[in-house]
Design a protein around this nucleic acid. Structure first.
Length: 470
RNA sequence: GGUCCCAUCGUCUAGUGGCCUAGGACGUGGCCCUCUCAAGGCUAAAACACGGGUUCGAGUCCCGUUGGGACCGCCA
């Protein structure tokens, strides 16, 4: 047996868990589960000016909602500053790092100048071989990169990628304020946490050769790397707010099911033949980097919406009844403390499942089942509640009134008798009734609607509709 | 600008040298089903970026061009 696989998701808490981060987390999760490995959550909060506890909570909330459970952590890098400091001291002693007295402003200026002159904006290494300290300046610490030779990143998705060491920049590993930077902490932590596979976004590929040298300086074996292709917006630029919702929890708010989002996200870059819909078990079973593509993918909200509809259709109505409750209240379909019979609600949802792409839609459609009265859509009212339908509705109402029960069968008979007597088609009666019952022209089968609304409310709504006929 | 990555329908993708007359899915159009709307079924339009090689044979391998993206921070 080879060593146990250990992977990590390492977000920085400078924002909510977004679509791209969630996909990275998902691939880490799937890889760990597939291999019976360990999935670690690590918060990279070394940038103290931008990291907040609120965002840490938000990221955790998003992970939990998506059902991406981790095995160790969450660890916070701010809890480990002394560890990083000791490695910096060691590097300096060993000559692997040095103090840099250049100010951020100077560096910035030189970088801009180099860019303007069409030169690579690389640190010029002027503090590399400084003999003594510069008085009155608190230095940062830079890591000494090799100046010649090549570094090969052997990527699980892209294969070997070669970089010339000559273009590697001496990284700052300790800021002048004494805090460590990402390029140091990420390596130290991956070593300390015995990470075997670093699975992250494509945007980190160019940093990888530099990090490899830090691993080597530490005297550790470098982990395996897998750089995932980016997720793009519709205009093929990096996904951002401009393209619509990017925060994972925004999809909760919009009534998406976590499993649908996960299913959508996994298919951005990964495939398994022609299969589109996967259970969590299938995902874990089938996941492999062999089937991960190299090209960036455009986020397509329409397909996500379709998938969500599929997940709603295939969810048990009882489960949907639980899930829809907060939306019922938010959409004011039901009152805060309103007592709703869950068995009845499940039955109602059963008729609406295949017509709802989100829980928000479902909650809104439920309105005509739950509310006391319905409001008519003006156009629908004009078209179907008229002189002609008044007679039909009146007759139907009488027929239903005298019905012993209110079963689907009885209802169908009552409708049939009216329809036959007047020599009209079922739709000539069904549509006016539909408007009377729901206020609009679209709904589940009319017999189902009546059955769920119940006799008493049905009669009342018919009476109101008859009065509205003109 | 430098470095690195990428390139099949509008979008997500199958394709690992002959099974490709390039398949599936979303979306779009049509038809069927039908009390409306959906769901479902059938169906249509829709792609190998371009140019060179290699090979008996190239979407698949190589090179170049073009196009897109990422990185080049005392951010991560």
């Amino acid at each position: 047996m080879t060593e146990k696989i250990r992977v990590r998701f390492a977000p920085s808490p400078t924002g909510h868990l977004h679509i791209g981060g969630a996909r990275t987390a998902l691939f880490n999760y799937l890889y760990a589960r597939h291999n019976n490995g360990t999935f670690i959550l690590r918060i990279e909060d070394t940038d103290r000016t931008r990291s907040t506890d609120e965002y840490i909570e938000a990221i955790i909330e998003g992970m939990k909602w998506l059902g991406l459970g981790w095995d160790e952590g969450p660890f916070r890098q701010t809890d480990r500053f002394d560890v990083y400091r000791s490695y910096v001291d060691r590097f300096i002693k060993e000559g692997k790092a040095y103090y840099c007295y250049c100010s951020a402003e100077e560096l910035d200026e030189r970088r801009k100048l180099a860019m303007a002159m069409g030169k690579p904006p690389k640190y010029d290494g002027r503090c590399r071989d400084l003999k003594g300290p510069v008085p009155g300046v608190t230095p940062a610490v830079r890591f000494r990169m090799p100046q010649s030779g090549q570094t090969i990143v052997d990527d699980l998705i892209r294969g070997p990628v070669t970089f010339d060491n000559a273009q590697l920049d001496d990284l700052i590993i300790l800021r002048s304020d004494g805090t460590p930077t990402y390029n140091l902490t990420v390596v130290v932590d991956d070593v300390d946490m015995k990470i075997t596979h670093v699975i992250r976004g494509d945007d980190h590929l160019n940093n990888t050769p530099k990090q490899i040298h830090v691993y080597k300086a530490l005297g550790y074996e470098v982990p395996k790397f897998a750089h995932l292709p980016m997720i793009l917006g519709s205009d093929k630029t990096r996904l951002s707010k401009r393209h619509g919702a990017t925060s994972v929890m925004a999809y909760y708010e919009m009534g998406y099911l976590p499993d649908a989002l996960v299913n959508y996200l996994v298919r951005l870059g990964w495939s398994y033949g022609d299969q589109e819909v996967f259970s969590r078990e299938e995902l874990v079973k089938y996941f492999s980097f062999e089937n991960v593509g190299k090209a960036a993918a455009v986020f397509n909200p329409e397909k996500l919406l379709w998938l969500n509809g599929q997940y709603i259709i295939n969810s048990p109505s009882e489960k949907l009844a639980e899930l829809v409750m907060p939306f019922l209240i938010r959409e004011k379909t039901a009152g805060e403390g309103q007592d709703i019979d869950m068995a009845w609600l499940s039955k109602a949802i059963g008729t609406l499942k295949e017509r709802s792409k989100t829980l928000v839609e479902l909650a809104n459609s439920l309105r005509y089942y739950i509310a006391e009265e319905v409001e008519y859509n003006e156009k629908a009212k004009e078209k179907f509640l008229n002189e002609k339908s008044r007679g039909l509705l009146t007759e139907l109402k009488d027929g239903l009134d005298s019905l012993p029960g209110f079963s689907h069968e009885g209802l169908e008979k009552a409708f049939k008798s009216v329809v036959e007597k007047h020599g009209v088609k079922l739709k000539d009666l069904a549509q006016p009734v539909r408007v009377a019952m729901t206020g609009g022209t679209e709904s589940p089968g009319i017999f189902e609607v009546l059955e769920i609304v119940g006799k008493e409310k049905t009669i009342r709504r018919l009476e109101k509709a008859i009065k509205a006929c003109m």
